Amino acid sequence: MTAFEPNSIRSYSQEDVQQILQFAIARQADDKDTEFSYQQLLEIAAELEISPESLNLAERDWQAQHSQMQSRKAFDAHRLRKFKKRLSNYAIVNGFLMLVDLVGGGGVSWSLYILLFCGLPAGLDFWNTFQTKGEEYEMAFQKWNRNHQIKQTISTVLNRWFKALQT
C-alpha cells in the first residue's frame, strides 16, 4: 500500500491492525505512567466491536501470559544469583590457590592448571545460565516453577495453620 491510496481502498490484515493500534496507543499516552481503567478498556473494545466476553477471554489470556513472563523473569534472576555465587566461589578458591603457589614457589605454575581445569565448568555454567532458549532451558524452568509452586503452597498452608493455632 502506498501513502497516496484513498482511504476507501486501504485494507489491513488483523496483524497489521494490531500493530497500528499498538503504535497509536503508545503515541497517545504521553508518559509511561498513564494507565487505562477497565471502563476505558470496555469503551475501546465496544468501539472496535469486540464483545465483552471476547475481551474477558483476552484479558485472562493476557494475565496468564503476564504471569508466565513474571515467572520467567524470577527464574532468570534466580539462575543469575546462583551463577554469581558459583563464580565468586571459583574466584576465591582459585585466587587462594594462586596465592599459595606464588608464595610457596616464587611464581605461578601448578595453580594455572587448576585454574584452567576449573575454568571449563565455569564456562559451561556461564553458557547454561545465559542460554534462555531451547529444550534444556524449558525443562529447567518447568522444574524450578514446579518447585517454586510447591514451596508457595506449603508456605500458604503453614501460614494458615499457624494463624489457626494463634487464635
Rank of each mutant, 00 (worst) to 15 (best):
L158K: 05
Q166W: 13
Q142N: 08
Q152V: 02
Q149L: 09
I154C: 04
F141T: 01
W144S: 01
Q166A: 15
E136H: 13
H148N: 13
A140Q: 03
K151N: 06
Q152S: 11
I150H: 06
W161V: 06
F162P: 05
A164Y: 10
N159K: 13
H148V: 03
S155P: 05
W161F: 15
F162K: 03
T156L: 10
L165Q: 02
N147G: 15
S155K: 10
E138I: 01
Y137G: 01
Y137I: 02
V157A: 04
N159Y: 08
E138G: 09
W161E: 07
A164W: 12
Q142D: 10
V157M: 00
L158Q: 06
L165S: 02
K163E: 13
E135H: 07
Q149A: 12
W144F: 02
M139C: 12
N145V: 02
Q152A: 12
Q149I: 05
R160I: 11
I154A: 08
N145D: 08
W144M: 02
Q149N: 10
K163R: 07
N147D: 11
K143N: 08
Q142E: 08
R160W: 13
E136A: 14
T156M: 08
N145F: 05
R146V: 09
F141P: 02
L165P: 04
S155H: 06
F162M: 08
K151V: 09
K163L: 12
A140C: 04
R146W: 12
H148G: 10
Q166H: 14
Q149C: 10
W161N: 01
N159W: 05
